[in-house]
Design a protein around this nucleic acid. Sequence first.
DNA 1: GCCGTTTTGTAGTGTGACTAGACAAAATGC
DNA 2: GCATTTTGTCTAGTCACACTACAAAACGGC
Lengths: 398, 398
Amino acid sequence: MPSKTTPMFEARASGQSSLSTVLGLIHGHRAITRSEICSITGLSRSTVAKLVTALVDLGFALETGSEQIDRVGRPSMGVEASKEVLAISVHPEVDYLEVKAVAFDGSIVRSEKLLYDEPIDTHQAVGDMVHVIENLVAELQASDTSYRILGIGVIVPGQINSSTGIVRQAPHLQWSEFPIRDLLTQRVPMPVFVANDASLGCKAEMAYGAAKGATDVVYMHGTSGIGGGVFMNGTELKGFRGYASELGHMRISSGNDIDYSGIPGTLEALVRRDDLEVVLGLKNVSDEELEEALLNNRTPASTALARKQLEALGIATANLANIFNPEVLVLAGFLRFLYRFDQNYFHRVVKKHAIPAVLEGMQVFVNELGANSAAIGASELVFQEVIADPTKYGTRAN
Amino acid sequence: MPSKTTPMFEARASGQSSLSTVLGLIHGHRAITRSEICSITGLSRSTVAKLVTALVDLGFALETGSEQIDRVGRPSMGVEASKEVLAISVHPEVDYLEVKAVAFDGSIVRSEKLLYDEPIDTHQAVGDMVHVIENLVAELQASDTSYRILGIGVIVPGQINSSTGIVRQAPHLQWSEFPIRDLLTQRVPMPVFVANDASLGCKAEMAYGAAKGATDVVYMHGTSGIGGGVFMNGTELKGFRGYASELGHMRISSGNDIDYSGIPGTLEALVRRDDLEVVLGLKNVSDEELEEALLNNRTPASTALARKQLEALGIATANLANIFNPEVLVLAGFLRFLYRFDQNYFHRVVKKHAIPAVLEGMQVFVNELGANSAAIGASELVFQEVIADPTKYGTRAN
DNA sequence: GCCGTTTTGTAGTGTGACTAGACAAAATGC
DNA sequence: GCATTTTGTCTAGTCACACTACAAAACGGC
């Protein structure tokens, strides 16, 4: 007699199966022991044994011999995330297109980069993406390891509706109303996910970087503009249509300078990477060069500008602290070295504008993952889908 | 042989039992049919039958005869939230203390109010609370109906840490570092919960008021200061220590006027109820009187002030729209009629400062629940605890 | 008023996801 | 070498469901 035990109603994300939970733990820890899984989840040893072998069968995990030492008792068996399960990240930017293959254990397996002299249109962008992806896939399939590629995560520097996969506005790429997910899905035989670059950076820093272990995180990423990502209680702040966490467009001053979206007095209008380049006599330099110049060639003019920008960043941070009461604030991109230029001044400004209670225990960090952060976040889009339904994406379909 | 099936690990709020889910539905709808429960939850009829009878046994629900008409098929049995299950709300304010008994179906059963001529200290406040609660409880127990009082929800106009139950700072009451929950727990034989007034107002409006059915809500409440409440994806924004959603202290201007927490240029510093009273030649009037005066006695001076305030409110709203991309924005307290003074102007300001995408589909409402809103929210604190573990709070303990 | 249709309540049976308990296995420490 | 500790494995039991009948209660057409 048939039976399909579907306990919680499927519409809600709440009813997570234990298989998902355990796979999530393996993925998050890269390597973990069975007994650790027991104590974290509260599941019994027998259940954990069953779940782990199921995940090994599905090709997501490997059981390693016991590696632990110096502890009484029978050593617990190790479980590792498979290095053969992959997601592909696709990152289009103004002057390049970068495609990486990220393994289920977070390592970068392959990386491909296409440089552009001039901005490309949406049509060419899709063509190039498909081309690079196909190359990468062919390369991976030709290798000795038997990789399984489960999906594609696209990193977009702009506002995107993650449920429809449409890029609403990407000011720097000059894209708008661009249904990138559907166009890619038509030409690549894999599920495609699309998200904002800052939100992915935040996700990655929470998984493996500066905000590891934190659940309430605010992330600000300075490139040309300022992007934001927010996770509260471990889940991403998406809002009604998925456009939430546009932190750069927060108006904090009465001034009339406008930002890239035409709004006056915002954080993005006041804290500009271009202005830092100009005051240092530079143009189109890398983050590394700009950091070097800013921190080591201090002039009265550069100090005044950096202070002015730090004040704006501090006010914005205080606002965000009052609004979110975060555990960790992560500063990435050029905000990283703007912060380092004068941390103390920044903290003084924050302190002046925030309610004392919300600053208690709040930590400010700069990003740790650097160049791979967005790619890891994009892989996470795919892997979180896989983790939510392991049987669907596993090898031996039951 | 004993067995205790605890499927998901208990640390997470995720693993909600079906009993909780169904009780939550009954509570949220006040009245619902079994078949509606089936279609909403996806549970089978047999399971729903079992769960409903269990909840009736526990004293949380009543089965009513089928009331539906004009539909083919056997009519489904109705289920109603019990009117005998109560929570008590306690609301201390500068010039009064209000205690209400709220039933599980959201109705107000009893209400008691103590007026003060001058602000009282924390010691007297606790004494008065205990006294009024005891009176109310005695009154209820003496009545014909056999009420069951399950807990107390305290509404505090200030920053409180909901996990420790300590009032960190309540500027208007001039309380600080006041462990109100523990002091009440010692003297009242019931679980006590404490939360911020605006967050409770938001909760109530989402359950029964202007934001009913919405999951992503931003709420702003103007009394003397401006309090905020935020729910994203149906859950409250609490932040790391529970101090999140202090929306009034968001700095939006370069000005130097300070708010009640001493921060310059904030929403609360720019949008002040006192200023409205002054420009209208009033003092210490009720919201109703102020509304009447503002909307019907328009002078050049009052119009100029209201516009200035509306501009600040509009900028703050745009910031919050960019940050949260809410589905519904609720304006309560004096913001309600400030908004009504010139809605169009407000919306123009918002439009100018927000990214177009985040305003799509965003609705602005004024609060609907009025005077009972906070009390209903406070009862919700208790009831949500009850819903999370019905067997613990039910009558016939199994 | 009878009868087919539709929808719901009820009862019995089965199953999958767990737990608990017993025992074996693998480490440490004296 | 033996007691102690911790873990893996196996078996039996439990609970929250789903599924399948079948009965009950409404409607509509004749």
